[in-house]
Design a binder for these strands. Structure first.
Lengths: 224, 224
DNA sequence: GTTATATTGTGATACAATACACAAATGAAT
DNA sequence: ATTCATTTGTGTATTGTATCACAATATAAC
């Protein structure tokens, strides 16, 4: 094991390993080699072994990896057994979708409460989660520490809401707004879900494909 | 200009440049140097110049980049002027949130129609978009080509819905389901939004921070 | 017009990530 | 028990990415 400093690339692959291992478990597979795992995931076996070796020795020579054990190791590396506390700010369409559909518990996160400015939402209960007045953020928590804030407010309120949360002492912000947050406290972790960035990157690949296709068509025309 | 093969890293930065340039435009900035842009985005000036140089020469020595012109170049590279046609499959919470809140038009995509299996949704009109029966997918389109499908169905239906879309001839799938799609046609572009992967990566960084904090606390205790 | 200052585009260089290759170790077969 | 077939973990080579450094060229000042 090295454990000097694990690169972002490795970290971003860990959740994918987790998903694959869960899938294998469901399929009744109880052991797998790096070769087979790589084949199924479109990675090389050596990359997989290198990735895991950042954190320990989880395999056995001549045998491979025990699916359940490896799954447990990765879950632990990702902090899934830490029970992080979560609040959600901004109960619009996307906020509500997360409250009602996203299974925070499954990933070791515990959604405690939601916040909004709209009077018609405050006091209600959505998907089992109480919605409070956002200006009551500090008071309503009554000293309970908050690890993570999910930020789903409109773009125009994002910066100020983010600062409120930083002042409250959250350790991380899961940012669904379409701006780049720059928290005054640089220790606060910001994890972005930028729909538009994803769509635009897809637009690039689409354009590229179409250019290739049209170039091929032009070439074909010329040959005739 | 090189234009051999642009790396994914560069492509994933392009939407961020676009957002920053839009922001600068709103702020009334009409020219910017790579140094200043890098400073504001947390990148080095040389990386920015290298990135842009993949696609052409957009700057001027001694002057910098014209914000509007550069914005236009990047928009064009990302295919924002191509008017890709889009259908959305699965009008659950997340699908509805996208229909009602996500501005496809702004990014050069045109959402035409939505599909679901639930009879209570079929025939309705949500956010100006008609919801059809998913089994009518081919017929209802009546030969109109579809570039992109947004996939928001439940996990259990994801694989089969994906194959239906591939058979229909879509060029890309914007995948909001929590599985890895493996389209039978390898030319189909898959762009994933995996909420859980993002949250779990954040969990890793959180754990890391807390380990550092508790290690520091332990050290402090020992010193006393 | 000439000079000083700013800033790009790019070749060279340093650094990071991935793939290769093999010794060490295990399980299965005889 | 011994051999053979696997498969890991890791040192090394290769490839890919980011930074450095500077010639080339523009603007701005006088």
């Amino acid at each position: 094991m090295k454990q000097i400093k694990v690169s972002n690339n490795v970290i971003r692959r860990l959740p994918r390993y987790l998903r694959k291992l869960d899938e294998l478990k469901v399929a009744g597979v109880d052991r797998i080699s790096s070769g087979e795992l790589g084949h199924q995931m479109g990675l090389t076996s050596s990359q997989i072994r290198q990735d895991f070796s950042c954190f320990g020795e989880f395999g056995q020579q001549g045998y491979g990896y025990n699916v359940t054990a490896l799954r447990g190791e990765i879950a632990s590396i990702l902090g899934m057994n830490r029970d992080f506390s979560v609040v959600l700010v901004g109960v619009g369409n996307i906020g509500r979708a997360l409250i009602e559909n996203f299974c925070f518990e499954q990933y070791g996160f515990h959604l405690m409460s939601a916040y909004d400015v709209r009077p018609e939402l405050i006091g209600r209960n959505i998907g089992g989660i109480p919605v409070h007045d956002i200006s009551d953020l500090t008071r309503s928590l009554d000293g309970t520490k908050v690890d993570v804030a999910v930020l789903c407010v409109p773009k125009s309120m994002a910066a100020s809401a983010s600062e409120d949360l930083v002042r409250l002492g959250v350790h991380a912000i899961w940012n669904f707004t379409n701006i780049e947050l720059n928290p005054s406290n640089p220790d606060v972790i910001v994890e972005n879900i930028h729909f538009s960035d994803s769509l635009l990157a897809m637009g690039y690949y689409l354009s590229e494909n179409m250019d290739i296709a049209s170039a091929a068509a032009a070439k074909l025309n010329k040959q005739e």
